[in-house]
Every structure is written in C-alpha cells, then in structure tokens.
C-alpha cells in the first residue's frame, strides 16, 4: 500500500468534496424549507466567482496586499451573490409558492438558463485566468508537493462555514424559525414566524456559501468561464441527494463521499469512468437508503 498516494487522493477528494459541500448546502436548505430544487443555484456560484474576479482585477490596480484583496473580493462576491439569490427567489419562486411544485421547478431551470446566458452576453464566452491570491504558507512548504496551501484554505473555510452554520441553526432565533418553517410552514406562520423572511434568509445563506465556494475553487484551479456553474451545480445536487436532501449534515457528508468516490475511482481504477463510478455509487446508496445517507423518509407525503 502506497500511503503517500492514498493520502494525496484522500486530500484531493476532501478538497473537491468541500467545494461540493459549500454549494450543496444551498440546495439542501432551500429544499428543506420550500421543497424546491433550486436549479439556478449553480449559477449563483458562478456569479460569485465572476464578481470575485472583477473585484480582484480592480483592486490589483490599486496595489493592495494579496490577503486584503482576496478578503475584500470574497466579501463583495458574497454580498453580490446573496443579492442575486434573494432577487431570484422574489422574482421566480415567490409568485409560484402555491402553484404545483413542477411549475417552480421549471421556473428554476429557466432562471438558470437566464443567468448563465446573461453572464455569457454581459461578460464573455472565453475562459478567463483567475489569479492565485492565496499565499503559500511557509509552514506548509515541506508538504507542498502533497497538499497545497490553497487546499488547506478550502478545507479550513468549509469547516468554519459548517460549524458556524450549525451554530446558527441550532442556537439563534432565525435558526429556530428556519427549523419551524421546515417542519410545517402553515403552523409556523400561525405562531408568528415571518415565513417570507425565513425563506429569504435561507436563499441568502445558501448563496453566500456558494459564492465562497466559487472564489475558492477559481483561485485553486486558476480559471473560470460562464459555464462552470452547470457542472458544479449538478454534482452538488447529486451530493445533496446522496446525503439526504433537506438535511444539512447530510449534504456535507454526501459531498465528501462524492468527492472521495471520484478521487479514489480515478486514482485506483480509471479516470475514464470517474462520473460513472460516482453515479453507480449514488444508485447503490439510493437503493438501500432511498432517502439518502442521513435523510428521513417522509411518510406523511405518500
């Protein structure tokens, strides 16, 4: 057994899984609350990366320090993406809240097509270089051939986001309101929860984590274009389903499992079938646990 190789694949899968997790959170939270699969979510991730790139280009002209630039860019991208997430919900989903679920789903697909075509037309169809602004940490230098500072930052940011999100849901007022809305929207309304506000908050949080994911991965691989949201969105959606859609720990677990499956399948078997293995695994899990790894089967809706 080649342990170094094993750890490299493990860490590679962990990095990939972390990015999936940042996106999958948005899918799973929105689904948990309004049972909608927000297909435009991948585009929010892409818009986050684009906004980040624009801000970085402008700030680089001013000659700021790299860490300052990436922090400001991340903040602006998060604010910008949350604005998009919020607006998309208000325009495309809110008017359809009482319509059949299929209508909202079609509306979501339409929003996704609209957003990426909008970026395609307003920005460019080209691949754009994304500067690598995450510094090479000195203490990481001996390990840099196995594990780069970039990957460390991605995993650390994801961990921090997950912990604060758990805290938010468990211990704050808005978190309690979210859980209440997820359980029973009408009942929550009756006891005085402002459901509209809760739904908006859900979209805002989901968009913010997706934007962070967008910036981190773009900085890691060094390029973006208008179409990155589609594939990342599909994969994250798969991860959310794998973990049990509607469950936050499930989304994280599902993402990591997906990331590892892809990484190990490529490493030990063949990269020709990377996606095939990922989906075979999905099918197997859904056969034995139809609601996903941590999902609960909802008996009321039979």
């Amino acid at each position: 057994m080649d342990w170094e190789y094993f750890f490299e694949l493990l860490l590679g899968g962990l990095t990939r899984g972390s990015i999936y997790a940042l996106i999958a959170l948005g899918y799973t939270m929105v689904y948990g609350i309004i049972q909608l699969i927000n297909f435009a979510h991948g585009e929010i991730y892409m818009i986050g990366a684009f906004t980040g790139l624009i801000v970085i280009s402008v700030l680089s002209l001013l000659g700021l320090n790299h860490i300052a630039i990436i922090c400001i860019a991340a903040m602006v991208a998060v604010i910008y993406s949350t604005a998009y997430g919020y607006t998309v919900e208000k325009i495309a989903y809110k008017p359809l809240r009482n319509a059949p679920r299929l209508s909202a789903l079609i509306s979501a697909i339409g929003m996704s097509l609209f957003l990426y075509n909008y970026v395609l037309l307003a920005q460019t169809s080209d691949f754009l270089p994304f500067p690598n602004l995450i510094p090479e940490f000195e203490f990481m230098e001996p390990y840099s051939h196995i594990f780069s500072s970039n990957e460390l930052v991605i995993i650390a940011v994801t961990a921090i986001v997950m912990i604060s999100l758990t805290f938010l849901i468990k211990f704050t007022k808005i978190g309690k309101a979210m859980r209440a809305t997820a359980q029973d929207k009408e009942m929550a309304m009756l006891v005085g929860v402002d459901v509209n506000r809760v739904i908006s908050a859900t979209f805002i949080i989901g968009s913010a984590t997706a934007a962070l994911g967008g910036i981190l991965i773009a900085s890691h691989i060094g390029q973006i274009n208008y179409f990155i949201g589609f594939i990342a969105g599909i994969k994250a959606f798969v991860a959310a389903v794998l973990g049990g859609i509607g469950s936050i720990p499930g989304a994280v677990l599902g993402s990591l499992v997906l990331g590892w499956t892809e990484s190990f399948a490529t490493g030990y078997i063949s990269s020709d079938y990377e996606d095939v293995f990922a989906f075979i695994f999905l099918v197997l899990i859904l056969i034995f646990r139809p609601a996903g790894i941590l999902g609960r089967t909802d008996t009321e809706k039979v």
């Binding site: 190789y5 990939r16 990015i19 990484s263 490529t266």
Partner: peptide, 17 residues
Amino acid sequence: YEGITPGAMDYSAIVQK
C-alpha cells in the same frame, strides 16, 4: 493511458496519478 472528463471541477486525482 487515460481519458478525463472535460469540464470537471479539478483534475487533482489524475495529476496525482
């Protein structure tokens, strides 16, 4: 000798290989 998936998020696994 291997094929990769175009458009994948990253290629770290194949690079390790």
